[in-house]
Nucleic acid binder design. Sequence first.
DNA 1: GCTTCGTTGACTAATCCTGATCTATTGTAT
DNA 2: ATACAATAGATCAGGATTAGTCAACGAAGC
Lengths: 155, 155
Amino acid sequence: MTLSDAIETHLRDLLAYQGEVELKRSDLSDYFACAPSQINYVLTTRFSVERGYQVESRRGEGGYIRLRRLNCPDLPELLESLVRFEGQLGQAEAEALIGRLEEGGLLAGRVARMLRRAVDRRVLAVPLPERDLLRYRLLTEMLAAYLATVGGERR
Amino acid sequence: MTLSDAIETHLRDLLAYQGEVELKRSDLSDYFACAPSQINYVLTTRFSVERGYQVESRRGEGGYIRLRRLNCPDLPELLESLVRFEGQLGQAEAEALIGRLEEGGLLAGRVARMLRRAVDRRVLAVPLPERDLLRYRLLTEMLAAYLATVGGERR
DNA sequence: GCTTCGTTGACTAATCCTGATCTATTGTAT
DNA sequence: ATACAATAGATCAGGATTAGTCAACGAAGC
């Protein structure tokens, strides 16, 4: 049981009650008597979209970290299938994925159209291999945000 | 809840009653027991044009600050107004725009949430200044794709 | 041993808030 | 009409307060 595991467990416990939790990074690092950056490590390794979580944050006075548990029947398989892309996604693969979701009725036509624009290499316009990494992050985060529900309620 | 948030809330409440509010900066800063310049900070960060507000003011004897809500832009106006960003867009500005379009009923809640993820600096995760350029391209392209009407019909 | 995972600390970045100083507008005395 | 004083908002640099990034090093598991 590492420190990271302990922090993960703690956060999961909090999330079990509410689908969303807000906290201060410094409070958490004080509580676990660790470096503040340790919190970031846990967040990126254990609370990623692939695992069904989303993280928001703000710096400065009144800063916070907000954790959300994603809730969507179709999301797990979807993200599971993304894992094999290993964090990278080519344009063709992205378009194929969007097409399948649209046919499956999970994406409205306008939304699908918008997503296709977003994964276009001319719109992203950053050199490879960063482009495929960016496309992966973008699409997974956007799909999660669009498809997920929180607390069993459609947002 | 920071001081800025409190001031923002207060002003929003006032605006909810009347579409236009006139007040003295010094009164407000007295009321919140803060520096007068704090009011300016709130005005520029929370009541910007991107967020759909217009601010007028006069100095000297009889000076005042007048706050007004603007109507939600349609796609042509929107694209026109984006020009002034010169191909770059910060996260705060992007979020302001998305919020305004959402309030105006042009973006559904889920779509707005999705777009907010897309403009998040942690999702884009490319170094500045490329990040602001990328954000601009992404948002304009996606909004155009989503809001566009073809043959008078929403696609 | 080598590779992966966990942990830390030094540096970076965003956000809020204030105070000193500047500018615009009006009032008043000559 | 002009000059000066008084009033009130604007601007800007910088300090304070958070959170993020990254490289390095150590620990744990093959």
